[in-house]
Structures are given as C-alpha cells and as structure tokens.
Design a protein around this nucleic acid. Structure first.
Lengths: 156, 156
DNA sequence: TTGTAACTCTGCATATTTTGCAGAAAAAGG
DNA sequence: CCTTTTTCTGCAAAATATGCAGAGTTACAA
C-alpha cells in the first residue's frame, strides 16, 4: 500500500512553524506548545525531516563570516540543449548558494558568495569557460533587506 | 574595552560547519568532533547565535509545503528617493523570502513564494500600487537545482 | 619579569531531554 | 462488526544540557 507523502495536517504545520522560529527547539517544547505528547512531536518531526518537507540548517550571515561579495549571475546558454549539463556543472561549485532555471530572458540564474570582488571575477571567468555558456550578466547585491522563511499562514 | 565581534577562529568555523550540515547536532556531538569540552562547544555556539553569525532555522521545501509559484520580481523605483520606504513596505509582506538592492538595471530584487499563479498575480498588483513603484518584471523559477549554504572552506 | 584583570576552558553534579518500547486509541478496509 | 494498520501515549533508561567553581590563558601595565 502506498503511503501518503504529501498531505500535512494542522499539527504538521504547527511543528514546521515552531522550527522556522527556532530550529533547535526541543521535542519537549514543541510538544508542550501543541499539547501533544513528546513521542508524537518526535514522530512527526522525524517524518517531516525524512521526507524533506523541512530541513534544519545553520545559516551563516555571509558578511559576518567573511563573504564580501554576494552576487547574482544570469546565464545565457547556447545551444539550449546544453542547459542540463551546464546546470550540473555550476551546481557542483562551492560558491553557488542558489541555482534555478527561469521563465525569463536568461536560462539559468545563480546566486554566489565570494570572499572578494577578485574572487567573484575569477568565478565568473570560470563559469564563462563552461561549454554552452554563451553570455553572463553579473549583478552585485548591495544591501539585503530581508532573508526569511515563507510564512506558512499564507497556506491556510 | 570593546569586545571583538568579528574574528572567528578555527573552532568557530568548525562549529559553523557542523551546524551547516545538521542544525540539530547536539553540543555533545559537536564537542566530540572538535575534541573540546561540551561547555566550550556550548559557549561558542551560544555566542555565535547571539552575535548573529549563524542562525538555525527550519527551511521548508516550498513545493512540498504548498507554494506552487516561486518567483522573482525586479522593481524599478521612481523617484529614486522612495527606495527606502518602498523596501520597508515590501519587506513587511509575508510572501517575501528575499529582498535586496542591487547594482543592476533595477532598484530592488525580490523573491516571493505564493500558493498559486493567481496569488502571485495579486501580489504583483499589490506591489505595483505602492507609491514609488514605477515598473516591475516578474520571472518564474521553473526548477531549483541547488539551494545551499556557502562553503566555509572557501574562506581558509 | 611580575601582578592583575578579563576571558576562556574544563569537569562535575543536577536537571532536563531524548530514545526505545509496549500497550491504548483511532482510523481504514473489508 | 471485526481485522489490520497507523498513530498516539506514557514510562523507564540512556543521553544531553545546564549551572557553577576552579584552573588555565591572554593581555597589558607597572
């Protein structure tokens, strides 16, 4: 029998919500807030983690940790058939924090964190040598106003 | 005497690195991996959290949780003096997961998560009515290849 | 060099949390 | 109505976190 892997109930959402606020919140505290037993909180959370609905990660502040060049690179691919291999190649680079294909003018959009402008220039050069990369356009992020989790209340 | 809030040593980096892999790793396990006492691991990590060098958050998978429209909106502001108030206004919206000003053609770049294309259209309309928002350009993220933390080894 | 003040680290006892498990309750399916 | 499966609960044992006091370290000035 197939198990349902997609439907989340109110308890699940409440757990996710707790963890968005504090990823280290204990099972005990989650259980208290939701008025369920510790075992329930644990089972639910472990399932959510296992299914990849949520992942709990330490997110460093790029500035404070020493990344002085946070930038966005838009990439044109020609011929278009090379998109997948190029995406794989770029995905493997440690500087890359985000990579997606879009509906826009460019084929791939990348966010990168580099130590310095020099490092960023080197990285863009590196990208440019990948077969299929036809053109790139780099934009620096000057000031980050918000970096948050989506509000789950929007889904109710 | 001012306290140093910026310099991180190897132990700090090692702790950050552990937490990038698993945000719920216990003090005990971190201490074991670094060959320091539990107290040290705890003191260090608490300081890093307090100073905002790292924050531990549950990151939900937008798809799995019900956000079917993940998009990017580039925004032109006229007159330019309205940039700050517009940024504040946009920042307060729950759909917004990322907001930054850039060196590029547009003044602000926003990432948003919406339940549906309808919801996204409504959101863009909402943004367009803000005073100072002159033009917007929306791009859908089709496929996300990578969503990761920056590799701290780059800083060594 | 020596002394002092400010941190940081360690280890231990206590409090809290997690884990594993077995049985109760609830839901699903004949 | 009775199985079967799943989920929940509570308990005891194991693991972990916390508070604290004392031992090192470091920085700095006399």
């Amino acid at each position: 029998m197939e198990k349902n892997h997609t439907l989340l109930d109110d308890t699940d959402f409440a757990i996710l919500s707790c963890l968005q606020k504090d990823g280290r919140m204990s099972f005990t505290e989650i259980a208290d807030q939701l008025n369920v037993s510790v075992g329930t909180a644990r089972t639910r959370l472990n399932r959510l983690l296992e299914e990849g609905v949520i992942s709990i990660v330490g997110r460093v502040d790029p500035e404070k940790v020493g990344f002085r060049a946070y930038a966005h690179i838009a990439i044109y691919i020609r011929p278009a058939t090379l998109k997948e291999p190029v995406a794989q190649e770029i995905s493997s680079k440690p500087e890359v924090s985000f990579l997606a294909s879009t509906s826009g003018d460019y084929d791939l959009e990348v966010d990168v964190m580099c130590q310095s402008n020099n490092h960023l220039v080197e990285f863009v050069n590196e990208i440019s040598t990948i077969e299929g990369v036809y053109q790139t356009k780099t934009t620096l992020y000057f000031k980050v106003y918000k970096y948050a989790q989506p509000d789950l209340n929007l889904l109710k």
